[in-house]
Design a protein around this nucleic acid. Structure first.
Lengths: 151, 151
DNA sequence: CTAGAACCTCAACTAATGTTGAGGTCAATC
DNA sequence: GATTGACCTCAACATTAGTTGAGGTTCTAG
């Protein structure tokens, strides 16, 4: 296997296969500015190989629960012309880690409240902190709102 | 304040105000079998007061990230004719607690993986467990899929 | 008894995240 | 150099969770 093979750009079929993301979803991501592609003379897409990592980042971010809009914003912070370095990706990962931490904390808080409510079976509006995000949960885990409330 | 006031059914405006859920959303919940209402002679909705708790349960469940379909299924396990008791609500809360636990565990797993990746900046398909839900995360935290994958 | 607030239904629209299909083109192989 | 699988665009549709508006009715307070 010639090493030059390693640098050949990917067709959409290859990217789809290797990323596990459908071609139609890749089209969609492109329309929404999350990925981009060169074109052949015949107008077919050719992806730089680091697009694979980009798509991986998109998938992972979605698993965390982030909307594509946020993911696009994060990706926009990548260097424009050059292929992103490990350091670039690390920075993004670190950013997501914070989101994750907040989200986990919020869910744990919710669980604690739920534990309290299981005893009383309350879930009633005034007495149960679960009902009012702006109450205790809002104060100690503002991150929660990021994930469930509209902007 | 006469105690009989406590038993008067709620108008949609009252339920909306007290639950923080818009009237149009209440209509929507009704269309989708999540809540129900009696009607006055003039066809206006009148809600039993425990509907307040039902709506609270819906809101809380949504904050956990559950789709309405799942919430409806849970609510269907409530007794049909009578007003649910604390015990009934406790049972549902307990069920949600399990979901929450799984979800927290899955996110923690994801975070651990992410920590590994921050060091290497990888996020590449083969080497990074983050990419393949059916790998480690799938094995130890199947619950994660419940929240992010289509059925 | 009447004005105005609150309510009713139904249809259409929104936004996110894609999928599906029609109709046509490209490119790699025999 | 033709075939065939992979690709292209564009439009329409799907799903979730509602919102908005039009056009009409009911309820309540004065």
């Amino acid at each position: 296997m010639p090493p030059v093979e390693t640098h050949r750009p990917l067709t959409i079929g290859e990217l789809s296969e290797r990323s596990g993301v459908s071609a139609s979803a890749l089209h969609f991501y492109e329309r929404n500015g999350l990925i981009e592609a060169e074109r052949t003379a015949g107008n077919q897409r050719r992806y730089r190989r680091d697009t694979l990592r980009r798509v991986a980042f998109i998938k992972t971010s979605q698993r965390v629960g982030l909307p594509l809009k946020d993911i696009r914003e994060a990706l926009e912070s990548l260097p424009d012309g050059r292929t992103p370095t490990k350091r670039d990706w690390s920075r993004l990962s670190l950013r997501w880690r914070k989101e994750l931490d907040e989200r986990i904390a919020a869910l744990q808080h919710l669980r604690n409240d739920l534990d309290g409510c299981i005893g009383c079976g309350c879930l009633s509006l005034k007495s149960c902190t679960l009902q009012n995000p702006s109450d205790e949960l809002g104060a100690s885990g503002a991150g929660a709102q990021r994930w469930t409330l509209p902007e």
